[in-house]
């Protein structure tokens, strides 16, 4: 739209740039700091943003190597960060797969099949995601405590229990996939059914390949969701070698054992890939955002 601009226009534009850049410096300060801290020697050393001496000790420890300091003392890695990362990835991939399977079939029924209570079910799904799992922590703990006395690998302090606990969180994903299914014309499936395919074959061989992009996005979102989940993991996992990153990272910053530098390296190491994944996934997420989801 072409409009006559007044004289103050350029000045206001410059002001906006200055304001935005100042705001960005303020908000990105923590990220700059954490990179700098991970490269400083020691866990308490103060210094400017660009460190005077660069030391890779924290990175060595984060990657699981021991490190010999200037006095010849060998410092072992304080926590098994890579093991935690592996636990997180393992749990997240399994639960994302389960979530994808469960939510895709549900979404198909909601999008394509007619049954009683369909609209009610859709509303119930929306309502359900208003109640976070953190409110049911006590019951979740009690339930898995009970299950564990029969099936130990699904009890407290097992990864199986966490996968199961995450498997129920599919309400929002059903909506996302259903929304995508709704945009695919039904004629192609109907043609397949006319040609003698069963409903399931039409779903599996015709609809799913067309919906591949959204399946990838939901898998990514479920994956990230499981990696960053803290409350349920914090009550179900106890032993150090069982922890996920989200639970384990906290151990770095206890007052009695304050490992600021080691934490910085571990945080970048584990945070970078997750952030990159999220930036990729968020492009498709913006539509889903307006339906009321809030990330933790």
């Amino acid at each position: 739209m072409a409009m006559v601009q007044d004289k103050t226009h350029t000045g206001r534009l410059a002001l906006a740039h200055v304001g935005l850049i100042a705001f960005l410096v303020l908000t990105l300060f923590p990220f700059l700091m954490i990179v700098s801290i991970s490269l400083r020697p020691g866990n308490f050393a103060a210094g400017s943003i660009i460190p005077d001496t660069i030391s890779l000790e924290h990175w060595q420890l984060a990657l699981g190597f021991s490190y010999t300091d200037s006095t010849g003392r060998v410092i072992e890695p304080p926590f098994p960060v890579l093991l935690w990362l592996w636990n997180s990835i393992k749990i997240a991939s399994i639960s994302a797969t389960v979530i994808l399977l469960l939510s895709t079939t549900c979404a198909y029924a909601f999008a394509r099949l007619r049954f009683r209570g369909r609209q009610l079910g859709l509303n119930a799904l929306l309502l359900m995601q208003m109640f976070p799992a953190v409110l049911s922590l006590i019951a979740i703990y009690a339930v898995f405590d009970q299950i564990g006395s029969y099936v130990p690998w699904l009890g407290i302090d097992s990864h199986g229990s966490l996968v199961l606990a995450y498997a129920g969180g599919i309400a929002l994903h059903i909506w996302t996939i259903k929304g995508y299914f709704d945009t695919i014309p039904t004629e192609i499936e109907e043609a397949a059914i006319v040609d003698g395919a069963s409903h399931f074959q039409a779903f599996w061989h015709v609809l799913l390949p067309m919906a591949l992009p959204i399946l990838c996005v939901v898998f990514l979102l479920a994956f990230i969701g499981a990696i960053i989940e803290y409350p349920v993991a914090s009550i179900l996992l106890h032993q150090e070698q069982n922890l996920t990153l989200a639970v384990g990272s906290k151990l770095y910053l206890y007052t009695q054992n304050y490992l600021w530098g080691d934490f910085a390296a571990a945080a970048i190491l584990s945070g970078l890939p997750i952030t990159a994944l999220f930036v990729v996934a968020q492009r498709w997420m913006v539509n889903g955002l307006t339906s009321g989801g809030v990330k933790g």
């Binding site: 990220f31 990230i224 910053l253 945080a267 997750i274």
Partner: peptide
């Protein structure tokens, strides 16, 4: 750039602030 704080996992950025 303005979106970045949202993209970083919460458990990491909150702990970064705890230290800062």
């Amino acid at each position: 750039l303005l979106f970045l704080p949202y993209a970083v996992p919460g458990f990491i950025s909150i702990l970064i602030f705890r230290g800062l």
